[in-house]
């Protein structure tokens, strides 16, 4: 049941990615073996099957057990009911969605804005592109530690800067109301560079003629953006949304290094709960978290991909 869901992705994908030529596979000399042997799949296939596929399938069984790695007792859906019955665990479910939606929305908006700025005739364009992109390559742990220092309530640079203009900033990471969003903003800071370069690549491939046509009609720069750049960079928007949405749903390292899910459980996401339950030795519950994450990701991403690619065709 679950494996049929990702299948819809494949069926919507082939037009873009798998448009290989249909030439029949030819026999090698003397008809012995195919020149493109399936043997080539074997090394990758073994690693993928053993380390990824088997655990993914087994997760469905182990999520219904009380489990110590060495022996497991079947308990049915108990882990799942526990997961949703406990307030601390349910909040992770909500937070995951909030986090994924916030980060991907901001990455789309800011990435597009930066893309427009950085494809215009700025003199320092090259430098700016590098500056915006570099955080993508920096380790998440390093970014997390640095920003938890910058966001400290009294001594942190952010609040000191805010104090200069007369705003007293909150305890960003220590306040239950701001912790998750603060981490989300740092996530955007780190990831917006990737969204920006995707937009730049998309905008550079828009034919100049369209802009000339707008200029001939006397359109302003707003018109250029609204009627040319925005609709024609839809494929870029599409990939930015999908990428950052998947990333947002799965994200763990930044949240873990900045708040460890705290204060209390207020910034926990599914991935951090999986880790906490694993640490506590509740392997079955941890795996149930994994199955829930799997279901959330496929149930949201697969329809989203279909919806977005349908729009792409009509746009």
């Amino acid at each position: 049941m679950t494996s049929s869901k990702p299948g819809t992705v494949t069926s919507s994908e082939p037009p873009t990615v798998a448009a290989g030529r249909r030439a029949p596979a030819r026999k090698g000399k003397g008809g012995r073996g195919n020149p493109y042997p399936y043997l080539f799949y074997v090394p990758a296939g073994i690693v993928y099957t053993v380390v990824f596929l088997v655990p993914t399938v087994m997760a469905f069984y182990f999520s219904m057990t009380r489990w110590t790695l060495f022996d497991s007792t079947f308990v049915g859906l108990e882990n799942f009911t526990d997961f949703f019955a406990e307030q601390n665990l349910r909040i992770g479910f909500q937070n995951t969605l909030i986090y994924a939606v916030t980060t991907s929305a901001l990455k789309v908006v800011l990435g597009m804005a930066l893309g427009v700025v950085l494809t215009s005739r700025l003199k320092m364009r090259g430098l700016l592109r590098s500056v915006v992109f570099f955080p993508v390559l920096v380790s998440t742990v390093a970014v997390g530690i640095t920003f938890s220092v910058l966001l400290k309530p009294d001594t942190g640079l952010v609040n000191k800067a805010l104090a200069l203009v007369g705003i007293s900033g909150p305890d960003w990471l220590g306040d239950a109301n701001t912790a998750l969003l603060s981490v989300a903003l740092v996530d955007v800071w780190k990831g917006v560079g990737l969204a920006t370069v995707i937009y730049i690549a998309g905008m550079m491939s828009i034919p100049r003629d369209y802009y000339q046509a707008v200029a001939v009609d006397g359109g302003s720069s707003w018109h250029r953006f609204r009627y040319v750049t925005l609709p024609l960079s839809w494929p870029a928007t599409n990939s930015v949304i999908i990428l950052s949405f998947i990333g947002g749903l799965r994200s763990f390292d930044l949240i873990w290094t900045m708040t460890r899910g705290g204060p209390g459980f207020t910034s926990d996401v599914i991935a951090s709960i999986i880790y906490k339950q694993y640490q506590a030795g509740f392997f079955g519950l941890s795996t149930a978290g994994n199955v829930i994450l799997f279901v959330v990701v496929t149930a949201l991403v697969v329809p989203l991909t279909r919806f977005l690619s349908a729009r792409e065709v009509s746009a």
Binding site: M58, I246, T287, T298
Partner: peptide
Amino acid sequence: NFLVLSGLIIPPAIVPTIW
């Protein structure tokens, strides 16, 4: 192709991988 796309989307199951 299906397996490749699944690998992009599906979050790895941690404890079963440890197992």
